[in-house]
Amino acid sequence: MNIFLFEDNQEDIDRLKTTICGNYDLIVANTIEDSLEMINNVSFDIAILDIFIDGMPKGINLANSINALIPKKPIIFLTSSMDRTVFECAKYTEPSSYLIKPFNPLELQYAIELAFEEFTRQPAAFATTNGVILQDYIFVKSDKIISKVNIKEVIYVETDANYCNLVTADQKYLIKVSLQKLLDQTLKPLFIQVHRSYVVNIDMIEHIYLQDNLVIMENGEKITLSHRFKSQILKTMNLFK
């Protein structure tokens, strides 16, 4: 996941860098000019903006520019002040959360989580489901780190009761959500259910062995094809026989 940071104080930048300790990719801009250029050219998932740069509330101006982007991005305001007047000013840019200096890694993490939850209007989503589900991406929290999972990179999804395991080429992500909900919210129409417990990425299918009731994925995984879903697959996939 990429974080865009607007901050001019090198100490604070270093501190943030150590705090995220390589869990996220950090894109740093020191001036408002750089920032305005970067937000249009660099891909990022969340913006952390210091409100006061050179004693001016430049962070608020930048927030307005970020809000004009399509798609919108969540914003976290970074400030050392707890004075309400500052927040009153910042309020109108509808930031997703605030981070107050000094902060520890947990607080940063929480601010990021909160920002995603606020931004997607899924309150306490990380606490309850371990993830925030978007149209093309799922932000999954695992081991106190939020990972951005691109739906297209998921090979298949395995479900067990209320948990779903998103399997990519190199990792597995656990998310506390029902398979049906996941299918409805994001997976369709890229994915297809092949078994009560499996949903596979259509683009990632290598072979389908109809007689053996097996689906071989690109990474070589063998997934069972159940009778119940076989006819459906044949219908929707319109295969050559």
Partner: peptide
């Protein structure tokens, strides 16, 4: 002048 904004907070976190 204290910042005060009611939100939903996960207690353990």
């Amino acid at each position: 002048k204290l910042l005060f904004k009611l939100t939903v907070i996960h207690l353990e976190t």
